Each structure stands twice: as structure tokens, then as C-alpha cells.
Amino acid sequence: MRTVTWLLCILSSVVTVDANVEKTIFLGPSAILLPDARPSLDELEVDTLEPAELPILATQLSVEFATETAPRGLESWYLLRGLEEGRRYEVRICWPAFQPTDFWLDTFPITQVFETPELISSLAGYSDRGRTLPLQKLGYTTDGSATAQSVLFLRVQAAASYYSTNKTLMAYPSPVDVDIILDPFILNVLPRSLGPTAIYIIVVAVAAYFISGYIYRWTITVSKDFEGKDHKE
């Protein structure tokens, strides 16, 4: 048990060496029927992450300072597609330490977003930055002319967390360089990206165990030989 805990501690520290990290863990939802006809979710003008096709999205994220009306700063939305029902996933957002920012990550089923005024209003505000399609026309369907998919919305809230004497910077904080990573779990136990690291650590630990045993036995043998020689003398 101590060995397992030690390995988990090492693995958890591996992903926090180069940058700050915030994450959320969730299960893939049941598939729902998405209409093939236009307009579709693809026309929301939001970036999409897929475990097989695009698990990592390198981008710049707009941020704002926290206010009374927006205590968690600016909201951005993404689509998580190609999920497997019941499989555990992790979404991580990594950003440089020299860009102090607070992040909050939440995932929502499509049905919840379209049925919650606050969420759909936030999605509309983000989507409207780059499109003219009326959001209320979008949705999901239960008829036969659709494709069943396991899909989630990801909402990222970002608030700048620094102070500067530069008034322009305080009024318009610079975008933050981020990597958003969609990471499926192996057997719902370990994130896939940590698989090679886990195997490496396990191999090193097993090798160290046997090598240390060999060295111990060799040391005992050598010490007994010295003791035997001393007694003869």
C-alpha cells in the first residue's frame, strides 16, 4: 500500500512541473441524438476536443478581472465529442506560471445547457462573438434523422489574478496561453497520458527491488567470508 501511495504521489507531481494546472474529472454521458440537418452544433463556432482526433487544444484564452457581477471572470465554451458512455475522463488546463490566472472548469450535458437560461445565455454570449446564427434554433432531437453521440459542453471561467501599475493592462488584461487537454482514463483508474510514466516508474521500482535484494545478499555473503577469515586467524 505504501508503494502504491508513493507512486501516485510521484505521478501527481509530474503534471505540475512545467505549468500551473486546473482540472475536472467526469464520466462520459449517455449518447443523445444530434440532428444531421443545419443548423447544428458545429455552427456554434466553439472549439472541439476529441480523445481520438484532437485531445489537446493549444490556444489563447481571454480573461477579465473578477467583478461583483462576474466573480469568476470571463467564460469560454468548448465541445467535448467522441466520448464513451461510462468512461472516466479528465480535462486539464495548463498555463504558464508567469501569467497568474484563476480557472474554474465545469462540464454540462447538452440538455442541461439548453434548458438552463443562465447557461444558454452564457453560451450565446460566447458564440455570438464569431457567428450570426440564432442560438435558439440549435438543439437536440429524438427523431430518426440524427446521429447518436456522447457529447458534453465544457465551460472555462478565467479571472486574472495579479495587480499592475499599468492602467491599460489592468483595464484589458492580456490573453493567457493555455493547453486544454482531454485525457481518457485507462480502466477508469489512470489518465492515459500518464500511462508511459506509470510503466516507467513501475519498471524502475521492480528493478530496484531485485537489484537491492541482490546487493543485500552479496553484502551478507561478503561479510560472512570476512568473519570466517577472522576466526581462522
Rank of each mutant, 00 (worst) to 15 (best):
P117G: 04
P55Q: 06
E85C: 10
Q60N: 14
Q60E: 15
R131C: 03
L105T: 01
F153A: 04
L152G: 02
D47P: 00
L83C: 08
A70H: 15
E118A: 14
R92S: 15
T24Y: 03
Q112S: 12
R92L: 14
G125T: 06
E45F: 03
Y89S: 02
D128V: 00
P29R: 01
E53Q: 10
C94S: 13
L133S: 09
G125S: 09
Y78R: 01
K23F: 13
L34Q: 09
L61R: 05
T48H: 05
L57H: 13
L74Y: 10
G28Y: 02
T67N: 07
R88Y: 06
Q60C: 09
E22C: 08
E90T: 07
Q157T: 03
T59W: 12
V46E: 05
R87T: 09
E43V: 03
D102R: 12
D18I: 00
L83S: 05
G130N: 14
S145R: 11
T16I: 09
K137F: 12
F26A: 07
S145P: 01
E43A: 03
L133F: 07
S40G: 15
E84F: 04
E90P: 01
R87H: 11
T59D: 14
L105Y: 06
L11A: 02
V113K: 05
R81C: 13
T116E: 07
D18T: 03
V156I: 15
L138S: 04
A58G: 10
V156Q: 06
L57E: 09
P39E: 00
L33P: 07
L41M: 14
E22K: 09
G82H: 06
D36E: 11
G73H: 08
R87C: 09
G125V: 02
L105F: 08
D102P: 00
L34S: 08
G130K: 06
D18M: 02
Y78V: 06
E43F: 09
L83G: 10
R87E: 12
T147W: 02
S121M: 08
T67M: 05
W95M: 03
N20F: 07
T59H: 11
A37F: 08
K23S: 12
Q112I: 04
P35C: 02
D106E: 13
Q149C: 10
W77V: 04
L135R: 04
E68N: 08
G86A: 11
S62T: 07
A70M: 12
L41V: 02
T116S: 14
T142Q: 12
V21Y: 02
S127R: 03
E43S: 10
S12R: 03
T132N: 13
A19N: 06
T59R: 13
P29H: 01
R88H: 04
L152Y: 04
L154C: 04
F26S: 02
P29Q: 00
R129T: 12
G130V: 01
C94M: 12
I10P: 06
L34Y: 11
P55T: 10
